[in-house]
């Protein structure tokens, strides 16, 4: 496999990952329409950080062993409404997709995540996974999530899950009993929550956002 190409595009693009190639895409404050075509044996990996934008991401998996791994973190504070729409199309048999979306909402922040996985009749032996988790730091924050699986093939593996809740009180209490004040404790727990999918060099952006939304 050729060396990984790294791209950094913030506003909508059309991208084709040629057969056997592998691409890593990282961007902050993404918005607009993204259409990504992944050819046979190619892989598309992305990490997006959103802070109140609207983005629509479509990935077409066009050839055998084409795969994508989409990781998105969205932050939505007072006055913001973050909208993320994903549409993963398993056009060819034996294609694979993973999506992990994690959100943090503060103040009166709003967010919406609609994610579709489509597997047509002929696309046997595909695998599609979608996982969404959101943490609400305030009672006035609001998030809606609509996972959608459109599966017509009968020999596929698909999973989706969504969990939305407040920070864990026991964890907060434990950190506080070690002298860590509420705001710092929240920040640590949020970083812990996001660290699974956040590249280490972007953690600072989370800290800054938390400071601005205390």
């Amino acid at each position: 496999m050729p060396a990984i190409d790294k791209i950094d595009a913030r506003t909508g693009i059309d991208l084709r990952v040629a057969a056997g190639c592998q691409t890593r895409h990282e961007a902050v404050d993404v918005e607009g329409n993204y259409v990504i075509a992944v050819e046979e044996g190619a892989r598309y990996e992305a990490f997006f950080l959103m802070r109140g934008q609207k983005a629509q991401i479509r990935v077409d998996l066009l050839g055998k062993n084409a795969s994508c791994d989409l990781k998105v973190v969205y932050l939505s504070g007072s006055g913001a409404d973050n909208i993320l729409l994903t549409d993963i199309r398993h056009v060819h048999p034996e294609t694979f997709s993973d999506q992990t979306v994690k959100g943090v909402l503060a103040g009166t922040g709003q967010a919406r995540f609609d994610g579709v996985i489509r597997i047509p009749f002929d696309s046997q032996k595909c695998e599609g996974n979608q996982n969404h988790r959101a943490v609400l730091l305030s009672k006035d924050a609001f998030v809606t999530c609509t996972p959608e699986l459109e599966i017509y093939a009968d020999d596929v593996k698909c999973a989706h899950g969504s969990a939305i809740g407040a920070l864990n009180e026991e964890q907060l209490f434990y950190l506080k009993t070690r002298g860590i004040p509420q705001a710092e404790a929240q920040k640590m727990l949020i970083q812990g929550f996001l660290s699974e999918i956040m590249p280490a060099d972007k953690i600072k952006l989370i800290e800054n956002w938390m400071d601005a939304h205390e």
Partner: peptide, 27 residues
């Protein structure tokens, strides 16, 4: 508050220490 108590010098060793994924012990 619990953090003020801790910083004043109260320490509770938990019967069931709480798990905090994603945060290293050193941090």
């Amino acid at each position: 508050t619990p953090d003020e108590r801790a910083n004043e010098g109260v320490f509770l060793a938990f019967q069931y220490p709480v798990e905090i994924p994603g945060v290293s012990y050193a941090t």
